[in-house]
Computed example of a mutant assay.
Amino acid sequence: MALLEVRDLKKIYSSRFSGTQVQALDNVNFDVQEGEFVAIMGESGSGKTTLLNILAALDRPTAGKVLLNGRDLGKERAAFRRSHLGFVFQDFNLLDTFTNKDNALLPLVLAKEKYPVMMKKLTPLAETLGISSILKKYPYEVSGGQKQRVSIARALITNPEILLADEPTGALDSRSSEDVLNLFTRINQEGQTILMVTHSMKAASYAGRVLFIKDGRVFHQIYKGDRSSSEFYEDISRTLTMMSRKGERA
């Protein structure tokens, strides 16, 4: 059984005023195996953000379901989702009135963990992410790359079954982006399952598989295999070009 199963997913948005309907997702099906690093790509309006929001249980599908280890996410309580899913946002979503340590610990605070237990989890994670020295600082006192590392710590602190990332390098400069992508690669190699939505071909080239979404459907997928990131980048570029040409012919 796959770790994440997406079955016959549909999402239709209806306008209250005009009565028109827009189908954002149309019969989406795919699996993510434990330990995979999967990227999802597509043009603006393709449905990839809607898909990610449904996978994160932030939105509900019109039809279909999402199963995490066989459990229907749409029917689970918020506490289950908080414990089993980690989410990394493009704009970090850190609280400026909290220290970086308090931001990273927030999911455990909400779960009412005891402080010694929380610190036992945070200390090795902070070392892995290279944020030990900035835990006492506030988000506005550190760089964008450091903020994203804190948000990754917050996402990983509950040891989630899957880490979801929405354009995690979108607000970063090239050097910070590469640092975050190398970090994702390392934690994936240690066993963390990752699903990332991105516009960036470079970011996608770090994944082991890329799913391409077009007009609300899974259009194509490619696997990295034994290729280098630069070779995979070229394959991603060719696929995106093919998708755009098919759109022109249509």
Rank of each mutant, 00 (worst) to 15 (best):
S244E: 15
L156N: 10
Y138V: 01
I187P: 10
S143M: 06
A57E: 03
L3N: 09
T97P: 00
M118D: 06
I134L: 07
E190S: 14
A39M: 05
A207Y: 04
F80S: 08
P124H: 11
K136M: 08
I152L: 15
R175M: 05
V88H: 00
I213E: 06
K121D: 08
D215L: 10
S230W: 02
M41P: 10
S14T: 15
G70D: 12
A104Q: 11
S14C: 07
V109G: 00
F98V: 00
L181D: 02
T123E: 15
S132P: 00
N27D: 15
K75D: 12
G74I: 13
V38G: 09
T241M: 12
K147G: 02
M242T: 13
A126W: 09
F17Y: 12
E36H: 06
A165L: 04
R186Y: 03
F87T: 01
G47F: 11
A153L: 07
M243T: 02
K120M: 03
P61L: 11
V197F: 06
S237Q: 14
L163P: 07
L51T: 05
M196G: 06
S44N: 11
L163W: 08
E167C: 00
S174D: 03
G130N: 07
A104S: 15
R227V: 13
I222A: 10
E234K: 14
T123P: 01
R245N: 11
V6P: 08
M118Y: 08
V109A: 06
K10V: 13
S14L: 10
R60I: 07
H84G: 02
Y223H: 14
D91C: 00
K114Q: 11
M41T: 04
M1N: 06
V38L: 13
I40C: 05
M243S: 03
N188K: 10
L195W: 04
V142H: 02
F89R: 00
G225A: 10
R82N: 15
S83V: 02
S18V: 07
A104V: 14
L181N: 06
A153N: 10
A126Y: 09
P139T: 01
F37I: 09
S237A: 15
V197N: 01
V150K: 06
V32S: 07
D166W: 04
N29T: 05
